[in-house]
């Protein structure tokens, strides 16, 4: 009886050891394999965000360029994400930046803010702080008085929901 029990125990220990070995090998293989890149909230705009842009800008084309968007790659506090938007477009009486629009694809309010500017400012830039619900593309769209639209966007990773 005593033997039988220790046999059972031995068998159990052996099985456990094999199990652990399998796990270790499995983990090692998983580590060795190239980690699949977390696609995250990618460049693809969600339909709701596309709708916001369509409502505001119609079918007008938004082109890449002329906008620099400075944001942290990872936001330590998603209740206060610093955003700096700047453009090299002219700020002259007849050619100027009329507005800077700020859009966050995955926020409850996708259109976060609109900044209407005039040539009296001399330059076009905005520095502010925004809330983010989760990791998302942040987009800055610059609109000129002649109706051109330029943008820049950046993916920002967040930890907590900052939409308080």
């Amino acid at each position: 009886m005593e033997d039988e029990r220790s046999n059972t125990r031995r068998a159990f220990l052996r099985a456990a050891a094999v199990g652990i070995a399998v796990l270790v090998v499995g983990v090692r293989d998983a580590l060795a394999a190239p980690a699949p890149r977390d696609p995250g909230p990618g460049d693809d705009m969600p339909d709701a965000a596309k709708k916001v842009l369509r409502e505001r800008f119609g079918a007008r084309q938004i082109k890449d360029g002329h906008v620099s968007l400075d944001l942290p790659e990872v936001a330590p506090d998603s209740r206060e994400v610093p955003v700096f938007i700047e453009t090299d477009l002219p700020m002259e009486p007849d050619r100027y930046v009329k507005a800077i629009h700020l859009v966050v694809d995955h926020n409850p309010d996708i259109y976060v803010a609109g900044f209407q500017l005039t040539p009296a400012l001399g330059k076009a830039s905005i520095d502010t702080r925004i809330k983010m619900r989760r990791s998302s593309q942040v987009r800055a769209i610059v609109e000129t008085n002649t109706g051109e639209l330029w943008w820049a966007h950046k993916l920002v990773y967040t930890t907590l929901n900052g939409c308080v």
């Binding site: 209740r79 803010a113 900044f115 830039s125 905005i126 502010t128 925004i130 809330k131 308080v164």
Partner: peptide, 18 residues
């Protein structure tokens, strides 16, 4: 400026002026 509640608490903004 037109804002929503997506601007952080105690809102801060900096802008240029000639």
């Amino acid at each position: 400026f037109e804002w929503t509640s997506g601007i952080s608490r105690d809102p801060y903004v900096a802008f240029p002026l000639r």
